[in-house]
Simulated scan of single mutants.
Amino acid sequence: MFSPTPDIPEDKVRFREVVLGGASWSHVLKRGSTLRIIDPQGGANVSALFFNFELMVERYNMSDTLKAQHVAFLTTGRALYSDMGRILVSVTDDTSGWHDTICGHSTASLVERKYGKATFQEHRNKYHRNGRDSFLVELGKYGLGTKDLVPNANFFSKVTVDDTGGLHFDESHAKAGAHVDLRAGLNTLVVLNTCPHPLAPCGTYDPKPVHLVVYSSEPAGPDDVVRKFRPENDRGLILTDRYFM
């Protein structure tokens, strides 16, 4: 059953989809649409990459995103910048409050060390997947590969940094029913997976599913929450709009 979305008019919904725990997914999110990601059970992690589908060498740039907005994590009002200064997607609504930007994704060796070895040959669809291989599966569908693995975002995961530089994963952060809305600025290739966060605690391998809703949305107006967050975002949105002029 899909999560309810009473705030989205049904005639605006383009499609809904469920991504199982430990699975991967990709879609070209068209300008004029928004992707809502919902964590129905709590405890989900969604690792995501973003590319300009019309110019695949243009992709999400973590460092520019953080520097331009003077932030370290994502939430409402923040934009995900490309390496050309344009905005691939913007966070227009968020009930989670914190999405990790600095920790990357899991690998096969990390997952085996934390959760044990479970191969497809022995466990079939219950085998232990990891973020890196899942990204590569989806990237390969578009002619992309290892060279296109750049620092990713991790939605629903919160990681804090202490005074010594130590990273701390907040196990209590991802609440059931939380959602985040990502509005496309470009025709944006979204590549994601629901594998465990690299700092998630050891124990049972049990990645959580997420629900997706793609719906029609209006472009950023003069009072848009993203435009108002930082002067840099206003310039980023102007530069993004000019791409289509």
Rank of each mutant, 00 (worst) to 15 (best):
S216R: 12
R227V: 10
V226A: 09
P209R: 10
P209Y: 04
T160D: 11
V190M: 02
R242K: 11
Y215G: 09
L186Q: 14
N187C: 07
V226E: 07
L167T: 10
T240A: 05
A178C: 12
V191L: 03
S172G: 13
P196L: 02
D181I: 00
V190I: 15
T188V: 03
P201V: 01
K228A: 15
H173V: 06
P201Y: 02
P209T: 02
Y243E: 12
N193W: 00
L167A: 13
A178L: 04
L186W: 13
L192R: 01
G236P: 07
D181P: 04
N187D: 15
V161F: 00
V213D: 12
T204M: 11
T160F: 05
T164Y: 13
V191C: 13
N193Y: 02
L182E: 08
D170I: 04
S216C: 11
V226F: 01
S216A: 15
V225S: 10
A174R: 03
G221I: 10
N193M: 07
V190L: 06
R183S: 08
V159T: 05
D163W: 14
L192H: 04
L182I: 10
R227A: 13
G166C: 12
G177A: 01
F169C: 05
D223Q: 11
D234M: 00
R227S: 06
N193S: 03
N233P: 01
L212M: 09
A220V: 06
R242D: 11
D206M: 06
G236T: 06
Y205V: 08
Y243F: 12
A178F: 03
D223S: 14
D234C: 05
P198T: 00
L186A: 11
P201G: 02
A220I: 02
Y205T: 10
P219T: 11
F169N: 02
A176N: 11
V214A: 08
A174E: 09
P201E: 01
A174W: 06
C195R: 01
P201N: 03
D241H: 09
G166N: 15
L192P: 08
G221K: 07
R242Q: 10
G236K: 02
V191W: 11
L212Y: 14
E218K: 14
P209C: 05
T188E: 08
C195F: 02
A178K: 07
K208S: 07
D234P: 00
V161L: 07
L189P: 14
L186N: 03
D206N: 15
V161D: 00
N193D: 14
A184N: 04
G165I: 08
L192G: 06
F169E: 00
Y205W: 14
G221D: 15
L237C: 08
Y215E: 07
Y243R: 06
E171W: 02
H168W: 09
P222T: 06
L167F: 11
V210F: 13
Y205L: 10
H173W: 11
S172N: 15
H197C: 06
H168I: 12
R235D: 13
E232W: 04
C195H: 05
L186G: 09
D162R: 13
E171H: 07
L237I: 15
V214L: 02
G203H: 06
V161M: 02
Y205D: 09
D241V: 02
P196D: 03
A178W: 01
V213E: 14
R183G: 08
T194L: 04
C202V: 12
L239C: 09
A178Q: 14
A178V: 08
